[in-house]
Design a protein around this nucleic acid. Structure first.
Lengths: 144, 144
DNA sequence: GCAAAAAATAGCCGAAAGTATGAGTGAAAA
DNA sequence: TTTTCACTCATACTTTCGGCTATTTTTTGC
């Protein structure tokens, strides 16, 4: 491309020279062409070879700690509160939003039994509503 | 002494030779100077006038966030579910384990009103128990 | 300004939850 | 062997919830 354009330019100049139109100013035109050519070369060089400015943007990606994964119940707290297996089982079912009736059906006991367990649970956790029990249990890491 | 004079003579001869070359090829040197000058001009122009090439590198920095601190409710979810201010208020009180009666007293309305709000809340959250509503609301980042 | 929509309010009733009390059973510990 | 204790169940009662319906107030769109 470069050589072709140069050739064309030369051809043009030759032609003009032959025509004797620019014969008197040939030198000035020649110099001008050289100037333009090398200015272009300079620009091209600068654009090609200049190093890009590397701008580093740090994007903060929030990762919410998921309670569910790798949950381990706080055994020391559990034994401290003297929660039995059954109570813990019911606590978990309670946390899942089941009704007493559903819990009873799930662990094959009567409704009364579930209520009794609830009562003991509430007393041990020092609350008086299932929802508070669940809240407290989560806070104490007894359940996920 | 002799060698020094010899060296000087040689140096002189070389210098004369160089001068002669310069004289003979004055035109070429002139063109060369023009070329160098305008190449520099081109480079200068390019660097001055062109926009700097900025390469942006995005680095993701993982930040583990505790849910409880700096909690911001998910407004988009809230508007998506069409939860009113009152409903949201009650949802928060519900999550704290308060009874309907306590909530009614807290926001100075009748027990019936609280119940109605609850009901609308349950419907919007597609649950049918307060405890499930609280669970779901936490999951959806509606409440801390 | 007015009609429609949304929000807030309320009462009723059956179901569920919670309270209190008592008691039976079986396994493990003293 | 007796005692202890977790687990179970039952009854009776009160409180709280959830579902339904309806009215009033506020907001919104035309």
């Amino acid at each position: 491309m470069y050589s072709i354009s140069l050739a064309l330019l030369l051809f043009l100049l030759k032609w003009l020279e032959l025509r004797l139109i620019v014969f008197d100013h040939f030198f000035e035109i020649y110099i001008g062409c050289i100037a333009v050519l090398f200015t272009s070369l300079g620009i091209w060089l600068a654009l090609k070879l200049s190093k890009p400015i590397i701008k580093t943007v740090v994007v903060e990606k929030e990762i919410f700690v998921n309670r569910n994964e790798n949950f381990v119940p706080d055994q020391s707290k559990i034994s401290e509160l003297e929660l039995s297996k059954r109570e813990l089982e019911i606590l978990n079912l309670l946390a899942q939003g089941h009704s007493n009736q559903e819990i009873a059906a799930a662990i094959f006991v009567s409704l009364s039994t579930v209520k009794t367990h609830n009562q003991n649970l509430f007393e041990k956790l020092q609350v008086n509503r299932r929802i508070q029990a669940v809240e407290k249990a989560k806070k104490l890491n007894l359940i996920p």
